[in-house]
């Protein structure tokens, strides 16, 4: 026969165990709740190949993730989220971007040929590149759209450097944006920015 005192003790013990178990499981519930909070901006890369067993690439990356992780990577010319740019093939990339940034809106390059055409322009706050190939039956089309605020941010680092983290931050402040599209008969490449975690 269990005395009333022992009954109360056992009840207290069971209650304490139940509370402790609940406390141990609370972080799981909290973690699941936290998963419902979506980061703002996602960068998507999607490569589709129409051929049977063709190549397929899907990359979905939150910009906040890249912003935080990039500064931790120290490799080759990448340090503290900034990349050192040397003259590549005689082209000073930084000087080129600086020139684009300070020039008024307009077309910089227009080439129209029998095998295709190329157009590079600055328009409505974007650097636009449009290329179309029409050679040997190929109908490759390339569209690149870079917000100039991103160019500004990239150039905010010192000489011979591009500030990638600042560039990402500037990209994050953009609305849903199509950045790169490459299309031909066999494949499509798309790089874009939106608020969704999926690329479907």
């Amino acid at each position: 026969m269990i005395s009333p005192l022992e009954q109360r003790r056992m009840f207290a013990l069971v209650a304490a165990l139940l509370l402790a178990s609940t406390a141990a499981l609370v972080p799981i519930a909290a973690g699941r709740a936290a998963q419902g909070t979506q980061p703002d901006r996602w960068l998507h890369v999607r490569v589709d190949n129409q051929e049977a067993k063709g190549e397929l690439v899907r990359i979905n990356l939150p910009l906040s993730f890249a912003e935080k992780v990039l500064p931790t990577i120290k490799h080759d010319k990448l340090r503290n989220g900034k990349i050192t740019v040397d003259q590549a093939n005689g082209v000073d990339l930084r000087a080129l971007l600086e020139a684009v940034r300070t020039t008024k809106d307009g077309e910089f390059i227009t080439v129209q040929g029998t095998t295709g055409d190329v157009r590079v322009a600055k328009q409505g706050g974007y650097l636009l590149v449009h290329a179309r190939e029409n050679k040997d039956g190929s109908k490759k089309r390339v569209e690149v759209r870079v917000p100039l605020t991103v160019v500004d941010a990239l150039l905010s680092a010192g000489n011979n450097e591009l500030d990638l983290v600042a560039g990402l931050r500037a990209l994050g402040s953009q609305g849903d944006t199509e950045l790169v599209t490459v299309k031909d008969e066999k494949s499509t490449v798309r790089i874009w920015l939106d608020s969704r975690s999926t690329s479907d």
């Binding site: 973690g31 998963q35 909070t37 397929l56 979905n60 939150p62 906040s64 993730f65 931790t72």
Partner: peptide
């Protein structure tokens, strides 16, 4: 840093290559 940032994300497909 990466694991901390990933932990904050909702369930998602990050990379798929075929």
């Amino acid at each position: 840093v990466a694991s901390g940032e990933l932990a904050r994300l909702p369930d998602c497909d990050l990379v798929e290559v075929q």
